[in-house]
């Protein structure tokens, strides 16, 4: 009825032509605005694992939706991570930047002497470690790569695990990959280590007789007393934990988890933990690197 009336109006109106032109312009304008809105909304809802889940890169992943630990963190903790000035992990990254340039050893070499600008040379490092290292015939993680450089090229004593220097340098290097999706290689020589890491993940251990999967695969999103269980990803490490009041390595977290189920923890940098680190990074492949993340 309304349309008929409109038709009639256009037919009889002497301004009909102008009206039509106006309408077309109006429609075009509306379309433009709508398209813009769509772009903006898509941007806001970009899958990052923090506000919207990410699909795993490997379809064999037992998790169909990946959620970063950020998603399960408390509101204030999230705010702390997002604010670069308020993120206590940022201080470590800055310290790491200083160490990157610091010349040490007999030959007076710094990391920058060989690797130059970390934002270029280290862009991928945080995404693909641990990697298979042929000379030692095993997997090495970032901490171990840094120490190998230190011993072999800088001719300096290695940093002990969990020292402020090693944490700072590791965080600085991994922070270069911030926002890039984790993507570790589990094929070729890495395959057997991946398998070992997987076996570790599903092995019940400790007096409480639980495997990683019991909490982080079967029960994520549920509360365990005062904590909300996450999917247990590695994408934010080294992480500033409020509980520690300090930046800490992934292996420190592993040791904490093991002790919580009353299992004997492995040593920092042990082969068992590096294999688990590889497996966890595979489970989280697709999630963005968040180093230095802030967690409860």
């Amino acid at each position: 009825m309304f349309l008929k009336m409109m038709k009639y109006r256009f037919a009889v109106s002497e301004f009909a032509r102008y009206d039509r032109a106006g309408m077309v312009l109006c429609l075009l304008g509306l379309l433009f605005v709508a398209f813009g809105c769509l772009l903006i909304s898509q941007d806001a809802a970009a899958a990052d694992g923090r506000t919207k889940s990410v699909s795993p890169l490997d379809e064999k992943n037992p998790l169909s939706n990946l959620w970063s630990g950020f998603y399960y963190a408390k509101k204030e903790t999230k705010a702390m991570q997002l604010d670069d000035f308020g993120n206590p992990g940022s201080f470590y990254v800055e310290e790491g930047a200083e160490l990157w340039k610091k010349k040490v050893g007999a030959q007076g070499k710094s990391c920058a002497s060989c690797h130059k600008d970390a934002s270029v040379s280290m862009k991928e490092a945080g995404v693909r470690y641990p990697v298979y290292f042929a000379p030692l015939d095993r997997m090495i993680n970032l901490e171990q790569r840094i120490n190998l450089c230190r011993q072999d090229f800088q001719k300096e004593k290695k940093f002990e695990y969990e020292t402020r220097e090693l944490l700072a340098l590791t965080a600085f290097v991994r922070a270069q990959s911030r926002g890039m999706p984790v993507r570790v290689k589990i094929t070729g020589p890495a395959k057997p280590y991946y398998e070992k890491g997987k076996a570790f993940y599903y092995q019940r251990r400790g007096q409480l007789d639980m495997s990683c999967a019991h909490c982080h695969e079967n029960n994520y999103g549920k509360s365990l007393r005062s904590n909300l269980l996450s999917q247990g990803h590695a994408n934010g490490f080294p992480t500033y934990r409020l509980k520690w009041q300090k930046l800490g390595s992934l292996h420190r977290r592993f040791r904490g988890c093991n002790k919580q189920v009353r299992a004997k923890p492995y040593a920092y940098g042990s082969e068992a933990y590096v294999n688990l680190e590889l497996y966890l990074n595979w489970r989280g492949s697709g999630l963005e690197v968040e180093t230095p993340a802030v967690r409860n």
């Binding site: 909490c215 002790k259 004997k264």
Partner: peptide, 24 residues
């Protein structure tokens, strides 16, 4: 089940020293 066995001391893996051979 994820539920621990509260009165068992065998068939465990890597129980930490303070808890070895003790039921919960």
């Amino acid at each position: 089940t994820i539920m621990p066995a509260f009165y068992r001391i065998e068939r465990f893996t890597r129980v930490d020293d303070p808890f070895l051979n003790k039921p919960i």
